[in-house]
Amino acid sequence: MTVTRAIPRALGRLLRAEWLRVAVPLALLWEVIPRTGLVPRTLAPALSDVAAAAVQLAVHGGLARHLASSLGTLALGLALAVLAAVPAAIVSGWNPLVRRHVLPYVQVVAPVPPTAWVPLTIVLFGVGLPMKVFLVFLGAFFPTFLNTYQAVRDTNPRYLAAARVFGASELSLVIHVHFWHALGAILMSIRTGVTLGLVMLTAAEMYGGRAGIGFLLMQAKEFFQIPAMVVCMGVLGAVGWTLVELLGLLEARLSVWKDLEHQR
């Protein structure tokens, strides 16, 4: 299943009858209730106001530019996090010596909520791109590391023995057994990392730099443009959904051989 066909298929999944049956009444309520004036319409915009703001942002507000900036920062931070976390976690899971030296630090730092890092990050990196990338990295690194580590630790020792008996070196074991065995969990951990990375991206953009959907969100707040705020939130949600679906695609590819695991 190629990517170009998978997204429409996923969207088709969304537009199933069950989903529509709830979405359409909700949309109607969203349109009607603000118009009744129970809450001022400028503070609680109707669906049509939000749609108009979306068009406005897209045509005049540089929505595409800010979206590209957000996606770029996210991609950079995620790539760094995965490249750092996956090998480090595999090696920690493989070797007790490495584990004893690395894991305690990870376990102590991981519970700190990523948003608590923002002030320190601003002090260290200023408020430009490095600060944003670092915060995304922080958000994505820990869940990826810990889940990958656990998956590698849970590697079925049978496979290790089977490879060892042929004479496989430790490096061969890591590359050919540990990594593949843990791949399903690795992708799942990346999925968690992506979600957290997106959270951190929004927080980072709200604090510094002048690009990105998070920045647009803050600008909308600063200038009392509530419908635009809703549009930004919707865009962020759509980005998160798309990324998760893409990763799900990757995981589905693996299910060809993964079934064997679940049969045990």
């Binding site: 069950e18 049956r21 709830v22 009444p25 309520l29 809450v39």
Partner: peptide, 22 residues
């Protein structure tokens, strides 16, 4: 979700909206 379920959901939402208005 059956037809009745839809009306229940609509009713709950309307109640929530009324609460907000109040």
């Amino acid at each position: 979700m059956s037809g009745r379920g839809i009306w229940l959901a609509v009713g709950a939402l309307a109640a929530a909206a009324a609460g907000v208005g109040a």
